[in-house]
Design a protein around this nucleic acid. Sequence first.
DNA 1: TCCGTTCTTGACATCGTTGGCACAGCGGTG
DNA 2: CACCGCTGTGCCAACGATGTCAAGAACGGA
Lengths: 348, 348
Amino acid sequence: MTFDVPGAPEAAPRPSRATLRDVAHLAGVSIKTASRVLSGQPNVRDETARRVREAARTLRFRPNRLARDLRSGAVSTAVGFVIGDLSNPFYTQIAAGAERLLREHGLELFIATSDEDPERERRVTLTMLERRVRALFVVPVADEHAYLVPEQQLGTPMVFIDRPAVDVAADSIVLDNRRAVREATERLIALGHRRIGLLADRTGVWTASERVAGFADAMRAVGTADWQRWVHRAHDVGTARSVATELLAGPDAPTALFALNNRITAGVIDALAGAPDPPAILGFDDFEFAPTLGISVIAHDPVDLGRRAAETALDRLGGRTGMPQQIVLPTRFIPRGSGERPPREHGS
Amino acid sequence: MTFDVPGAPEAAPRPSRATLRDVAHLAGVSIKTASRVLSGQPNVRDETARRVREAARTLRFRPNRLARDLRSGAVSTAVGFVIGDLSNPFYTQIAAGAERLLREHGLELFIATSDEDPERERRVTLTMLERRVRALFVVPVADEHAYLVPEQQLGTPMVFIDRPAVDVAADSIVLDNRRAVREATERLIALGHRRIGLLADRTGVWTASERVAGFADAMRAVGTADWQRWVHRAHDVGTARSVATELLAGPDAPTALFALNNRITAGVIDALAGAPDPPAILGFDDFEFAPTLGISVIAHDPVDLGRRAAETALDRLGGRTGMPQQIVLPTRFIPRGSGERPPREHGS
DNA sequence: TCCGTTCTTGACATCGTTGGCACAGCGGTG
DNA sequence: CACCGCTGTGCCAACGATGTCAAGAACGGA
């Protein structure tokens, strides 16, 4: 004689998930009627509806969204968001902004990460499309998006955020990068700075190029032909820190450092922590502790970037046709002290 | 005679998405053979396979994941993550940690937010399940998860992160909250602090209760029976700031402030920015600028929380059965100055 | 040449849901 | 009484893929 060991995991024959068929059967109606009740269609007698709902509750029925979305074409409520890096608040705040607006329209935002890798971005994006998202947001890293053209023609609205798509005509929301950096550079120049160390993201990143162009505009305007020698590259906190450290230790050290994104700013701040006589510092992107640390920045509202992207997509879903739009959002310079320091004359 | 206006959007009769049927038709084979080729099944003649692939490329065929996942049961590669708030780096770093490991196993992480709202958490979680995610991660806000029991029994592994589930037996990964706070409080006490202002998250949040309990442990151990009067509540940066400001302005002001999460710490720092003679400050959760600002914290690794959660889920997917596990991760106290200040004797 | 085995291929059912349509029952109208 | 419209319900097909199975082709060995 054998006993079932009470706790033995394999003893429990796992019940399978209840389907509409089970619900209909239990309620004594057809599948279609059950479907009608549970998806809120009219023309079902109250009593019947009650029985169906009762049965659904008993069986803990959960509709299978895959089946539903499959059957009913592209009416899924899922919207995809492809983001570079989950630990960068710039990206996640964009997502938060988009999410808030989409939710009000009954849409759900699903986020996946590209890890700042073009090939991965491509794969993740295609996966989203294979899941038939209703719309797609991308903060692109790749510079090749031609593969999205057919998908777009099939009616999936796509919005590119922070950087425009190069080879697909799609809506995009970007910042006024070039102007923002030009004007900020002009402020430094007006304070007397000429040796301005610019720390930019990798070449190839659109925002980096735009921002460097703004720097060039300002430098050339005051006759600095060799502005290129002041442009340095960094792509994360670590590299930014070491580049900044090196720069300041070297001969002909800059009297001001201009960090072109939030990661780089963090690196620069780290490098200068506790320096007795720091250079002027400017950062692109505001951040939580900038007021406390007294860092002057070019601020903008990532949440708004996301919100505007969502608006654009909703517009398209609402049927707006026509040429892709590029929305350019303004930035705002916030002086907090670090960027207002005049150049220090150094010995030698 | 009429012309198609070249740029007129409505002129283009939108082509519909190519399906396996179209590919098969173009290649002159059956749907099944096309399926075989495109999903890498064996036993197809090279020449046939070539033709199918060619056709797929021509039509820019993308398989419909909904259909595939529907047909083949629960083999979807999607894993769901329900997170409280996208703009809190604590959450997003957990997600980043989980994502990294899952990706190595061919799984994709989809994130949705509960906005720290129990009802929304429930809805979002159910939606995930309706989409038949392969596994589910939740950083719970709700304290009622019984509705997940049947889903869990149906075989979807669930892992609760940072806070355990109360009424469903599920795996969870948490921090050693109580001990961490007790020990940190003991350090303050050893420095001579007795009036320690504790700023905790809302009652009802599990981590808050645990951490307050740790504080109580330490305070009672030195005979402070009225420890409760030192416990204050805050739930975001703004409230934390005003609570901190009030506390320090009031009579019998605390000589130390202990902030029980990263949002609260930010508020406290903000309140004390530039204060001439600040109290000691301790924070729970490390953050990027803590070293620069010299803030002593109880640190831990959110990325690791996520990684461990992913490991646990993968284990379950790999077939591990048996009792749910609770993994408790250690924390680490990092002195950076702010927490090592002795109490200041104040006049009166 | 014949037979058995392996390879290649396609017809058909199926996953769980919703859309289209038919039909029964009912009350009102001419 | 024929006819109409309306309501409630069910049958069947369909969404787009994969699993099952069996038929036919190709191949090897006797």
